[in-house]
Design a protein around this nucleic acid. Structure first.
Lengths: 222, 222
DNA sequence: TTCTGTGAACGGATTCACAGCA
DNA sequence: TGCTGTGAATCCGTTCACAGAA
């Protein structure tokens, strides 16, 4: 079933879920696609169409029950459970990722960290201890790690990805500036701030371009 | 002129530029859209079409001169000059951004940092000193800052964005988990790792979905 | 022959617009 | 009357396929 759903749609769902959580905190009980769309800068039709891939969750003439819809979305996305993360590379970036306080409240727990540098192995970062990368594949499998995070230099990233996949990981979040090759069935997302900055300079360089491109504004996100 | 160009195309250009730089280091002098596409996991037709928005840079029957095309792309993107950044929020995240070594080599210099917390104002992070946020708008204008980076909590992000814009900034890279509202002509990009993780769990939850969605693989990036 | 540049075809995502239910 | 759910229409990016230059 969960098939045929455009990837863009899946990427918007967490945004919907998060915004519903905020509305819930604000005490809003029922919301229309219109109101939700205003907050998210997404058209109401887009929201309704996206939701229609999964079922009917609203009441005509009224809107959606915020708590209910949020629960539905969290269920669809699998956010009701905790997911375990392993970070490979505990340099500045890796340490910042491990120390980042935004993952845990959302159910993402960094449970292991790795590095090749003997000087870093054994180091404590928050509640985890850096292990030697030679253990990576085995530990991932033993601890049933769900998602791998790559925070190593570009030159090492592909090898790390391969080892993660050998360790049974099916989702990788990479901060390395390279295009990774992975087999079918493995999801990779890359976060690359330099690339983001470099595409924005295009519009800074020729400000008319920025104006022209912003007609019909859309939510842009990675 | 620089108009009418799809935003996706602009987002791919830095990727092309970077990859050409790597080929250059490897001593490759001429490259076909085919070869470039293999490395990037992008179709050759895509590359040629993208480039065609800007001109004709290849030689039929031969390919593209790597050094030349790289220069052209850097020119189009405005990467030949240095761009100044200001980071607002010098908590863990802001500090990591300032300390990150990947910006400077690409011509992005963090020249100012701000925070509202008196305990943080005056603190040195790398070569910059955290200033009080009340100075933000004025300093941005005086120092002609090009790009603002938001590293404050969600609740403060919109206000920071507004102040940045008041300070004359036309591009914002935000790490805050909110959809920012900005006037026409201002570019905003959000980097939101939690959202990325939350959309990957959808595929982990139902692995068939991952397989089904990966037919016709494309380069995915923010 | 090889590979670019590009109009035309295609396909997929967004938006429209309305029937139908509360 | 108000807003959902959804087929149909539209828009836009990708891919095809080929003419033309080296």
């Amino acid at each position: 079933m969960a098939n045929q759903i455009p990837e863009v749609v899946v990427q918007r769902l967490p945004l919907y879920a998060r915004t519903l959580a905020r509305f819930l905190e604000e005490g809003v009980e029922v919301i229309s696609s219109q109101e939700l769309g205003v907050r998210l800068q997404v058209t109401p039709a887009q929201i309704r169409k996206d939701l229609s891939y999964f079922g009917k969750f609203g009441k005509q003439g009224r809107g959606y029950n915020v708590a209910h819809l949020q629960g539905v979305l969290r269920g669809i996305l699998g956010l009701e459970r905790t997911w375990s993360l392993a970070v490979v590379g505990v340099g500045h970036l890796g340490q910042a990722i491990i120390a980042y306080g935004g993952f845990a409240p959302e159910g993402f727990q960094v449970v292991a960290a790795f590095d090749t540098d003997p000087a870093r192995v054994g180091q404590h970062i928050g509640s985890v201890v850096a292990q030697d990368s030679s253990e990576l594949s085995q530990v991932l499998r033993e601890q049933k790690i769900d998602i791998g995070i790559i925070a190593v230099p570009a030159s090492a990233a592909q090898a790390v990805a391969d080892t993660m996949i050998a360790g049974g990981v099916h989702a990788i979040l990479s901060y390395a500036p390279v295009t990774l090759r992975v087999p079918e069935g493995v999801k990779v997302r890359t976060i690359d701030p330099v690339l983001v900055l470099q595409s924005m300079t295009f519009y800074l360089k020729s400000p008319e371009a920025a104006l022209l491109s912003s007609g019909r504004r859309r939510g842009r996100r990675l």
